[in-house]
Simulated scan of single mutants.
Amino acid sequence: MAERKFNWLLVLPPVIFLSLGGLFWLAFQRDNPDELPSTRIGQVAPGMALTTLGDLPLADREALNAPGVKLVNFWASWCGPCRIEHPYLEELAAEGVEIIGVNYKDQPDNALGFLEELGNPYSAVGADDSGRTGIEWGLYGVPETFVVNGAGEVVLRFPGPVNETALENRIRPAMEAAE
């Protein structure tokens, strides 16, 4: 009786296929697979070396350390997605959520025109002309929104425009956890 040899070539393709399928499945289990993690989560929020924007109240360390949960929103007038998220920020501000605005690498007149046209949801705002504050916060681009607790610690970094899904699934739960 002839002995049969095991043929690895028949088993190898299904094993490779199943392994790759498992890796893809794991990669897509996160909310947003493109989202880069933030090193600021759980740490005290960095300072904000900002300049005044018109006669609006200036965002500073005192605003970050004020009691209660607050949002820090990096935005610019030249940013299309910032226009998309603006009504949601207005809605949060109307609910009494404190939002600190950081105008990122923008022309002051353009930034003030943006707020005049769309409304100002910010309790305090400042201009990050050089982008240094953005670097210290680990900013990848605008818009980005951070949830900061009453102790001045970053609880959540949300990259991209705030929308209904982001509010319900990420930002509101982080705000509740930070209280």
Rank of each mutant, 00 (worst) to 15 (best):
P81H: 06
I100Y: 03
G101A: 11
N73I: 08
F28E: 01
N163A: 02
L50K: 04
I135Q: 12
A127Q: 13
G126Y: 04
E98S: 14
F28C: 00
T52N: 12
P57M: 14
P173D: 11
L53I: 06
S123H: 13
I16E: 02
A45E: 07
S19G: 10
Y104V: 10
S123K: 14
D34M: 14
N7T: 03
V147G: 00
M1T: 10
T51D: 11
V155D: 01
C82N: 04
P159E: 15
E144G: 08
G131C: 05
E98T: 15
H86I: 03
V69N: 08
V148D: 13
G150F: 10
S38N: 05
E90T: 13
H86T: 07
E85K: 00
L139E: 02
G96A: 09
S130R: 09
V162T: 05
N65D: 13
V154F: 06
N65M: 15
P143L: 02
A76V: 08
P81T: 06
W8K: 05
G119D: 04
V102E: 00
P161D: 15
L156M: 03
A59H: 11
D55V: 08
P121Y: 10
A124N: 09
P159G: 11
A166S: 13
A166T: 06
P37T: 14
V72W: 09
K70C: 02
I135H: 09
Y140F: 09
F24Y: 13
R170I: 04
Q29E: 02
G131P: 07
I100R: 04
R157G: 00
T165E: 14
L50V: 06
L64P: 02
D109C: 01
R170S: 14
V125K: 07
A27F: 15
V147D: 01
A66S: 15
